[in-house]
Design a protein around this nucleic acid. Structure first.
Lengths: 336, 336
DNA sequence: TTGTATGCGTTATCAT
DNA sequence: ATGATAACGCATACAA
């Protein structure tokens, strides 16, 4: 490994001068600086992030926390899109990303300890159980953090506009003549609560009455549970004309249940999803859904985290809401 | 931040003794060791991975390289599954993982330089363009590496059994009475070449003649290009009875094209995919496909890389082939 | 403009 | 059994 010392010897200057030259400090003669840089390149010098981090107290490394309580973690398209864009933006800003988890090898540690252990300059907390004390500890620590879809006091968060999204979906369905809307929702989280509330509120505003049995619990990203909920809805004396699914993937569970009952979409039953993952638009018929701005969410998360890291003085916590977009698709039939 | 020095002061011993005690060195009195460990815990001491890495020349950090030339990178279910299992196994072994990319912030570097910059103990190279000189540089460097689905000389690689997988699919289709098989393949890579060769070889072994126009190029994970290829196949004077798709996701492009032509699956056309991602088994009809052992592939990659890192003396390069499994599904109709 | 000295937190060597 | 000291590679305050 070629170090700053090697260059200093090769150039006949001190290590300090080399360091300055390499970092573009003003107090070094242009000619010397150039000579040093040329030599560094010739020798194949590479800065050592580890040594630099130790010295500067800055690792240029940010942690990402994807502890999906619902299981799959990264492997859901929505989250992997977010990860991808966090990664891209972080790298653009000069930061690497490291996964934060519990229990590294033999040592047992919580999220906060892991982040400290790796000297992360900050952490993006996505897809976590925000009631978990370990998450709370990290999110309320001195480490800069940005949370996704959940707000801690005096902390920055990036929020997908669940209220507006659900509102848009309900209105879209309403405009197509539907009046009997059923909603299958995921596990109760703050996101779920927002969606349920927005669903009910918009229905009320439109004069739609939603019978309690039209609201069914299921599990996010689990087609099976949504299939069961669908079955329950079909067993009702008065069936809904449109079913809202917790997410696009869960819709697939409903889809197979509907087909099993000989119902075709959207002729016999209209459906809408949520997320707007690429898959939803590749299906036929195209799923009517609401696309969350995963890419924007990830980008903003990285951006505001780095901003917080690099300008702690002028930084203020904020809730950034990222708007999505209604994807009309073809699974809502015009009726009435 | 509480350091080893803080503990040494609090215990009235030297930093050296503290370090030894914390690392379970034999040459420290059991009682002192216990006292020190208790104090460390009481003070909330956390080791500093950065300082440790600088001193020991081992970062306990492995890089993962996901530069999907076909675009999406991590966001394809197959790769995100691999990432997930690499991560899980690495963490189990005490290693964190960092993404390796090109061009971090202002500094332009290639993959090798990035890995050195972060002092990665090793790198898992997945989903990359193995013809890229930057990849070659990394894979043939002194850094321990493991490649997925591609072999470099004297290097360890984890290979999905593409030959066996394609063979199994062809035989399955054959047994269901099909004799006119068309194959839409992805971009030409070593994996693709293996699949095409295995397809042709098995067909030949079964006495099936495959007309050249039954072999169509498309792009992996791109439903649109597979849709176009499907259209071309349907336009032939003599249509195939079964179409092989490059992967499960690409099949969706073919599916919509088939429906557009009023063909139902598998009544009017049989199809098979490749990968066996969860999505494929949630669709109705269930896709007939070959499940690659993504989880095993990731686990073996992490395991053999760490083995190479920790036992460089006894280590030997090896090609590990991971078997998959035929998922019969319901998209191949029994004919004849 | 350049160089000297120091320390970031840790581990390892070698005395004691 | 314990401690003093050096070193990993780098950046910086300060002296020259």
């Amino acid at each position: 490994m070629v170090t700053i010392t090697d260059i200093s010897k090769a150039c006949g200057v001190s290590r300090a001068t080399v360091s300055k030259a390499l970092n573009g400090a003003p107090d070094v003669a242009p000619k010397t600086a150039e000579r040093i840089r040329a030599k560094a390149k010739a020798l194949g010098y590479l800065p050592n992030a580890t040594a630099r981090a130790l010295k500067m107290g800055r690792s240029y490394n940010i942690g990402v926390l994807f502890s999906d309580p619902t299981g799959g973690g990264i492997s859901h398209e929505y989250f992997s899109q977010i990860l991808e864009s966090v990664k891209a933006e972080a790298e653009r800003l000069g930061y690497d990303i490291t996964f934060i988890s519990k229990d590294l090898g033999a040592m047992s540690m919580d999220y906060y300890e892991h982040a400290k252990y790796r000297s992360c300059d900050g952490v993006v907390i996505a897809s976590a159980d925000f009631a978990d004390p370990a998450i709370v500890r990290l999110a309320t620590s001195e480490i800069p953090t940005v949370t996704l879809d959940y707000s801690f006091d005096s902390r920055t968060s990036i929020l997908s506009d669940n209220v507006r999204g659900m509102d848009a979906l309900v209105r879209f369905v309403y405009e197509n003549g539907h009046r009997r809307l059923a909603f299958i929702h995921g596990e109760i989280t703050s996101v779920t609560q927002k969606r349920i509330a927005s669903f009910k509120k918009t229905c009320a505003a439109l004069g739609i009455t939603v019978p309690p049995e039209y609201i069914r619990p299921a599990i996010y990203h689990d087609p099976r549970s949504s299939g069961l909920a669908t079955r329950a809805l079909l067993a009702l004396p008065e069936r809904p004309t449109c079913i809202f699914y917790p997410d696009d993937l869960s819709f697939l569970g409903g889809m197979s249940e509907l087909e099993k009952n000989g119902l075709s979409i959207p002729k016999d039953m209209s459906v809408v999803g949520y997320d707007g993952i690429p898959l939803s638009q590749v299906l036929r018929p195209r799923l009517s859904t609401y696309r969350q701005g995963a890419e924007t969410i990830g980008r903003e998360a990285a951006r505001s985290l780095v901003d917080q890291i690099e300008h702690p003085d002028t930084w203020l916590p904020q809730q950034i809401t990222v708007e999505g977009e209604l994807l009309p698709g073809d699974t809502v039939r015009k009726i009435g």
